[in-house]
Amino acid sequence: MTEPQAAPGFTAPAPRLRVVVDRAESPRCGLRVGDGVVIDGSTIVTHGREFCSAALAAVAPVLAARQYPLPVDDWLVRKPYVSCPHADDRVVLRIEELREECR
């Protein structure tokens, strides 16, 4: 197993994350590819747009884990995708880390 990305004893600020709709084949909630929210610490920023609560609920359990250093071979780093719980909607969300220049 590979070492975490941060050195032991080093406390880096939690990275800003973006949860973005990667695929949306037949969503009843109105989500479209490219729609997303920004996770800044414990704050969710929607940029004035609505975002499906079921989709957020699906991704919420892994957000805290993604804000800590993970081994480079961790599944959440390699395949950062989460499916919406409404299987008929076929919505897939991608979690990506935002670079500091995006602040």
Rank of each mutant, 00 (worst) to 15 (best):
A7R: 12
G9W: 03
F10Q: 15
T11G: 04
T11Y: 01
T11D: 11
A12M: 14
A12T: 14
P13T: 12
P13W: 04
P15A: 12
R16G: 03
R16W: 10
L17A: 04
V20M: 02
V20F: 00
V21F: 10
V21G: 06
D22G: 04
D22S: 13
R23I: 12
R23M: 10
A24E: 10
S26W: 06
P27T: 05
R32W: 03
D35W: 11
D35Y: 09
V37L: 11
V38R: 13
I39Q: 03
D40V: 01
T43E: 13
T43P: 00
I44S: 00
V45Y: 04
T46N: 04
H47I: 00
H47P: 00
G48Y: 03
R49A: 12
R49N: 06
E50L: 11
S53M: 08
A54G: 04
A57L: 06
A57G: 10
A58W: 09
V59M: 04
A60F: 07
V62R: 02
V62G: 01
V62N: 01
V62S: 04
A64K: 07
A65G: 01
A65L: 12
P69F: 05
L70M: 14
D73C: 04
D73T: 11
D74S: 11
W75D: 15
L76G: 11
